[in-house]
């Protein structure tokens, strides 16, 4: 894996003439977790999709750059709320699908190793349909790790999980993705408080950064600093962006 670059994002986006956001500036530090928090519909997923090159229908004016000046496109791995496992493939084949899709040879041995690393070593012969929601997201995480990209874009990947599974997945992802530049889009203040080394809250038209405590991520769910930050984020989300 090449060294993780930072990412600078600034610009305005609209869909068919309706503005989603304008004058938005975000900086993602290299090798760090940046959380983009906000209510539904403020355009936080659009920001992520623009960086991922998945927003063909969005008119974007601005710039998305890596701090090392190199193109971003082939240095990104993407993980969504839906696990996007292909039901007709085995777990190792799912994890190794990237190489197949690029016309190469999949390294199934490495895929099995990664599945073991995310705690699914006993389930290697199963099909996705035989797994729970949390286990499926673990497979998706293994697939993301398999891509071995320095930049990871996470679009609410844990929001469909129950509270306990979600916390487990947050721990696992934080450990496994350490050292990479991660952008996590979420609407959950608790998740941002646990994982964000930088936290931006997006409101219509702007983004505000929050200071984070010096506790290393993943911060314990019951740490007073985590809870205090979660409370501040939650309160801010409820009253909306002050003018």
């Amino acid at each position: 894996m090449s060294p993780a670059p930072g990412i600078g994002f600034s610009g305005a986006a609209s869909v068919e003439g309706t503005a989603l956001f304008s004058g938005l500036t975000l900086a993602m530090a290299p090798g760090r977790w940046t959380c983009l928090l906000g209510a539904s519909g403020v355009g936080k997923t659009t920001v992520l999709r623009l960086i991922a090159g998945l927003a063909a229908h969005v008119d974007f004016e601005g710039s998305i750059t890596a701090t090392d000046g190199q193109p971003l496109q082939d240095r990104i791995a993407y993980m969504a709320q839906s696990d996007l496992l292909l039901p007709w493939l085995s777990l190792p084949e799912n994890v190794a699908i990237g190489a197949r899709l690029r016309g190469g040879r999949p390294d199934l041995a490495r895929a099995r190793d990664l599945l073991a690393r995310v705690g699914l070593g006993d389930h290697l012969d199963k099909r996705p349909a035989a797994l729970s929601g949390g286990q499926r997201q673990r497979v998706a995480l293994a697939r993301t790790l398999m891509e071995d990209r320095p930049v990871i874009l996470l679009d609410e990947p844990f929001s469909a999980l129950d509270a306990r599974t979600r916390a487990d997945m947050q721990d696992l992802a934080a450990t496994q993705l350490a050292g990479r530049t991660v952008l996590l889009v979420t609407h959950d203040p608790g998740e941002a408080a646990r994982l964000g080394e930088a936290i931006h809250v997006m409101a219509p038209g702007s983004a505000r950064s929050f200071d984070v405590p010096p506790v290393p991520v993943p911060r314990p769910v019951d740490h007073p600093d985590t809870l205090a930050l979660q409370g501040r984020l939650h309160a801010f989300l409820r009253k909306g962006a002050p003018a």
Binding site: L54, Q73, A77, Y78, L86, W88, I97, L101, G103, E147
Partner: peptide, 24 residues
């Protein structure tokens, strides 16, 4: 659409997307 997004983020070849995802 999610499958196609994933494939795009993986720099998939169109022929492989057809063979491995769209046809199945």
């Amino acid at each position: 659409q999610g499958y196609l997004d994933l494939a795009r983020a993986m720099q998939a070849r169109p022929g492989q997307v057809l063979l491995r995802i769209r046809i199945p």
